[in-house]
Design a protein around this nucleic acid. Structure first.
Lengths: 216, 216
DNA sequence: GATAGCTTGTGAATTACTTCACAAGCACGA
DNA sequence: TCGTGCTTGTGAAGTAATTCACAAGCTATC
């Protein structure tokens, strides 16, 4: 199923997708508590939004609730997992075997959600060949060739800012269409490659701004 | 200077603040290259946005450019640092001495930008008292009392989901007004507390969604 | 000191996102 | 079977963010 083409022609906003993700995490908690149904109003309260927003978000993909009753928790979870593409396992490679790369390679949250780290790359000769748990750090030069075999879905970029543009070129050349970027630079990629940035400096500066500009 | 009250009455959107942060990082790179001026058009290209957007963002805070010339790189950097509140040092405490907390405590990027980690807390007796570089892990029970002395500006939450609501209550009670949240839950805080969430699962799911819903 | 060439700053127009508000539908009890 | 109470799904209205488009202003050159 494909929500850009078959179901609807609407472009789905990134903010909507973030909320869907959030709703799913709430539903999983609620499922564990054993509750069977939930209303848009309760979901909204958990997510800090409005019930209309919740219903609108879901209505972009279909009609999953029952009037008068709310949404079936397991059914809606399942639908959200399907919408978000969490039914399958995604093959992830990490580029950059520094501190962040190392932390990510060990991060349990990846595997828990079906994101399997299958390789780690670096350009530093000193790091290439080192073993990390069950992975061996490989040369970035091998990425394109490896990708042909392993068919990576997602590349995680955890390289120093200055190396990043070159690394991104190689990722694109390897045909990978999704990038999770931890480097503090904006990536230049073709339109068919999706990038999500995680940039701690930016988050901290947002807090700094808020603290500096409160009503006092 | 306070951009909510004195300069303008406009509420500044989070997306605007993110972009300002991004512009600043570009300007710093350009400054190192020794270039003296930059146009809104060049900044826009670096940031993947439009020149009108750049000019609009900056115009919310004043008029920093010269028609025909562009913006002075050092002058605009300085203005942005001022707007973002980066002139001073912010006192940061980390709550949660697990893997993420440990990685964050050592993260150089904090100090580089004026965010000084001055304490680490946990509720686990096994962790309390351990030394981390020049910090000792303290009991979360001490947070409120410590904060009265140390006056933390920002709390970084890196606790397991289930402990997080209780931890957040203590942060709020300690009078801390800004939280960087790594826990995969939505925080309930009063309106005068600013929260930024860093949630890797959500980013990955965004990529998963994009991969699942491309035109094919 | 006039002209040409750029680039800003900003109202107006457009596009995107959120909220309102209510008809329609379901469950349950009388 | 009918009525009551609740909750969805969704057009319409409202709000927010982005882009357009152009007058105004600066620099350099002749």
């Amino acid at each position: 199923m494909n929500y850009f083409t078959s179901t609807s022609l609407k472009r789905i906003a990134e903010s909507t997708v973030r909320r869907l993700s959030l709703y799913l995490s709430f539903l999983e908690g609620i499922e564990r508590q054993g509750l069977k149904t939930i209303s848009s109003d309760e979901l909204a309260r958990l997510g800090g939004t409005t019930s209309a927003q919740v219903r609108k978000d879901l209505s972009l993909f279909g009609s999953f609730g029952k009037r008068g009753l709310g949404y079936s928790v397991p059914e809606l979870s399942e639908k959200l997992r399907e919408i978000l593409g969490l039914g399958k396992q995604w093959r992830v490679c990490i580029i950059g075997a520094g501190k962040i790369g190392a932390a990510l390679a060990r991060y349990r949250g990846f595997a828990d959600r079906g994101f399997i780290v299958t390789a780690v790359y670096d350009s530093d000769q000193a790091k290439i060949g080192k073993r990390w748990d069950n992975l061996t750090v490989r040369s970035i030069a091998e990425l394109e060739k490896d990708s042909a075999k392993q068919d990576f879905d997602i590349a995680v970029v955890a390289t120093p800012a200055e190396n990043t543009p070159a690394v991104v070129k190689q990722i694109v050349r390897a045909g990978i269409k999704a990038i999770l970027n931890f480097a503090p630079v904006q990536l230049a990629v073709p339109a068919d490659v999706t990038v999500r940035n995680v940039n701690m400096a930016m988050e901290l500066e947002g807090l700094s701004f808020a603290l500096s500009n409160r009503g006092d």
